[in-house]
Design a protein around this nucleic acid. Structure first.
Lengths: 334, 334
DNA sequence: TTGAAAGCGATACCAT
DNA sequence: ATGGTATCGCTTTCAA
């Protein structure tokens, strides 16, 4: 039965006093400082005392003393918050937690209307983003004491080299090819934040189609709120396009919806395949074929990279191809 | 052209030296400490120097000295991460930023597989959750130095008293009533995290239906992955139910989808209304009627409460009814 | 109006 | 194997 101090927080000095050793010794035990020999007896007594007193180290003091925050900040694009992404983040957080790091996520990079970015207020050791940061952002990070930044400033994000990006797009095309489609379109989303990723996926899809000897029409952005999706569907259909590769499942739903509204049958008149296997893919009628990636593995790798940046520890796992596969549903199978 | 120190961070001592005053004075200026009279001249010089040198206060040191972190942690349920929620959080963050607080969100309360909750690692001043925290969680927060917790430990969350919860549910029912429906069902989601909110919404809906003299059938949970949604739709239809109030848009899509798959027409044979007006509501075919709330206003209020807890400043805005309204689409209008 | 100095609590180096 | 203690950078009280 732990007795939690009602008023003052428990400090390492309290433990030292309780056990009858110095604060230094307490610190050595609690941080299992390497190169320090502490007798098993005192070690046990310190740990027991810490547990009994409900000791929690003071973040601020520890951060100040060691000069680092042990926080890793992940800057996400607005949307990418599907359930699978969520699961990945959990996995990443778990790996980082084992190394003593806390993972904090910030929804978006660009400060909207005067919200200072979290890197200024939290002073994370590492900031990881999906796209390259602007020079201003990098400067403000540096000023805030951020030690490492990914993607490295100056480097391009190069999504196309990330695992799963090209694979997923290729598999979308392969799937349509296997089903006999020979003239396809690529549909994107009007979302500036995601341009780089969209481009990479679209490029990979186009290239794959060419390899397979398929014909493609120009990339179009669709938005269900204006008439762009209806127009796109009409143009595509008139143009002999029989299938559409969508950037993600929302886009796939937009296209499929516009097709249905236009009186076309999905997939007989127009097949559609999405990407990410988000909830809408299985909820839509007809259910949307999509691409499911093992993003958990990706998160694990990302965490390893983060630890590499933070602690200099080697990146063990490799940027291998992710477990990516087609989830075939009625929007292509009929 | 700010000259950012390449190696060492800029400290308040650097500014003091640069300007030729003491570190204390620098601190007074930078924190605009009340009750301190600093000549306009030195104040300007300090600020200029800080800007030129690219000074960013060291979080850890400041936190340690003042004994608070100026972090407010918001613990969200897994799902509630729709775009509207996102916009609200931005608004909340903005209000808090003005008061010098950083808003950090944690996706879920229960630590999954050994991820320590962020309140242990960040030591926020205030933790705000959607549901009441367990005694263990409260203890761990206290040990981590968290000063205030909402909902207050021991208090029930009482969603039904939060603005917009009952309103939204009532409006769903009112909408169906106006369209002539007299026998309705309520559909929930199998999600333990959300039970309290679901119950509150469901109760409000049932009660409203009763007030209006409508008949209701027992609450059912649906899941598109098992056969439960198909079964529910069959039972409801056989039972003379003509419309369904869904807990949220995902549930509405599940129900509408099952109805369509069963050969029913939506809304002629079964009308469905969702809640939250999330993307799936407008993307689904037919588009789903839903409830849109001004969650931005709610976030503003929540931020005010947080500041009240943190700084003791009065809660100015009131828990007024939110701007909540029906977005009527074809899933009810036909 | 400004400065000196005492903490805040953990870390880690240097002794013992 | 353990203990002193200087240090991190800022806040804040007390003097000047």
């Amino acid at each position: 039965m732990p007795e939690v101090a009602a008023s003052r927080r428990v400090t390492s000095a309290d433990i030292a006093k309780d056990v009858g050793v110095s604060r230094a010794t307490v610190g050595f035990v609690l941080n299992s400082t390497p190169g320090k020999k502490i007798s098993e007896a005192t070690r046990a007594r310190v740990l027991e005392s810490a547990a009994r007193l409900g000791y929690q180290p003071n973040r601020a003091a520890a951060d100040l003393a060691r000069g680092r925050s042990k926080i890793i900040l992940l800057v996400l694009p607005d949307r990418l918050l599907g359930p699978s992404m969520q699961a990945s983040l959990d996995e990443g957080a778990r790996v980082l937690a084992e190394a003593g790091y806390a993972l904090v996520t910030q929804p978006q990079a660009r400060p909207l209307g005067g919200i200072p970015p979290l890197w200024e207020t939290l002073g994370p050791d590492v900031v990881i983003g999906w796209t390259t940061f602007t020079p201003e952002e990098v400067m403000s990070m540096r000023a805030a004491g951020v030690r490492r930044i990914r993607p490295r400033p100056g480097e391009s994000a190069r999504y196309d080299q990330a695992p799963g990006v090209a694979e997923g797009a290729r598999m979308q095309v392969d799937h349509l090819h296997e089903l006999g489609h020979r003239r396809i379109a690529v549909a994107a989303l009007n979302d500036p934040q995601m341009i780089e990723l969209q481009r990479s996926r679209a490029d990979a899809a186009m290239q794959r189609a060419e390899e397979l000897g398929m014909e493609t029409v120009a990339l179009r952005s669709v938005d269900h709120r204006d008439g762009s999706s209806a127009e796109a569907v009409r143009i595509w259909h008139d143009d002999g396009v029989t299938a559409v590769v969508a950037y993600n499942d929302d886009v796939a739903a937009t296209v499929a919806g516009a097709a249905i509204e236009a009186g076309l049958r999905v997939p007989q008149d127009l097949a559609v395949i999405g990407h990410d296997d988000s909830p809408i893919a299985s909820l839509f009628v007809p259910p949307l074929s999509s691409i499911r990636m093992d993003t958990v593995e990706a998160a694990r790798y990302l965490a390893a990279v983060a630890l590499h940046e933070a602690d200099g520890r080697p990146v063990t796992s490799t940027w291998t191809a992710l477990d990516t596969r087609v989830v075939a549903r009625r929007s292509t199978l009929g």
